[in-house]
């Protein structure tokens, strides 16, 4: 797998899988097909970009279980669930578990192409976000304990004076730490810094302590 956004098609029926693959190829979308969720997970690299189109009813892991597994493993791939006749309750469950869309067989080509394109751009963004978070986390690892304390309080919006008082150091020292943090994280501005702190889990997304 490389970083070209790819559509991963999963269906245990050879003809359904092949026809879906052909349809996506005919619309210039890069496709990889798998006969089961298990074989897909096995082949899955850590830097996969794109989206998954998965049949809901398969031997081994079902489409629903695959969705749960991807969420659990924090793999940034949106999932479109394809359902057969009467699998609707399963599709609803999959949506609740985080699938981005579900499509009924036989599949309308316009419908699935639109859905796949949306999922792909979402997948690209999810992948970029995940990569940014990874990078931020790696950079934050390089901070000293004191710098990390300062980052946390800066990200929470505390003024330098308050931080100095809280940490029992001079405001001047806070400023030095702050400059070091911005340099190490290559932050363009304060809001970029806050986003990285959130992505890396230093603070919660709601601006509170995690």
């Amino acid at each position: 797998m490389n970083d070209t956004p790819t559509v991963f098609v999963l269906d245990d029926d050879d003809a359904v899988r092949d026809s879906l693959g052909t349809l996506l190829e005919s619309s210039d979308l890069p496709v990889k097909t798998y006969a089961s969720a298990d074989s897909f997970l096995e082949a899955l690299g850590s830097d996969a970009v794109g989206c998954v189109v998965s049949d809901v009813r398969m031997p081994g892991l079902s489409g629903l279980e695959l969705q749960e597994r991807l969420t659990e493993m924090k793999i940034p791939l949106p999932v479109i669930i394809v359902t057969g006749h009467g699998d609707l309750p399963m599709a609803v469950k999959a949506m609740k578990a985080g699938a981005v869309d579900f499509i009924e067989k036989p599949i309308d080509d316009e419908l699935i192409l639109r859905s796949v394109r949306e999922a792909l751009s979402r997948g690209v963004k999810m992948h970029a976000d995940a990569a940014a978070a990874d990078a931020a986390r790696a950079n934050i690892e390089r901070l000293t304990a004191r710098e990390r304390q300062v980052l946390e309080k800066v990200a929470l919006g505390h003024p330098n004076k308050v931080i100095a008082y809280d940490l029992d150091i001079s405001p001047r020292t806070v400023e030095i730490h702050r400059a070091r943090v911005i340099e190490k994280l290559a932050a363009r501005n304060l809001s970029h810094l806050v986003r990285m702190a959130i992505a890396a889990g230093v603070i919660g997304a709601d601006g509170a302590n995690p």
């Binding site: 359904v16 092949d18 026809s19 052909t22 005919s26 599949i107 080509d109």
Partner: peptide
């Protein structure tokens, strides 16, 4: 029967 129908629709759209 939904399976071959799905495949037929897929192949025909691709063609």
């Amino acid at each position: 029967i939904n399976q071959p129908l799905t495949a037929i629709a897929g192949y025909a759209s691709a063609a």
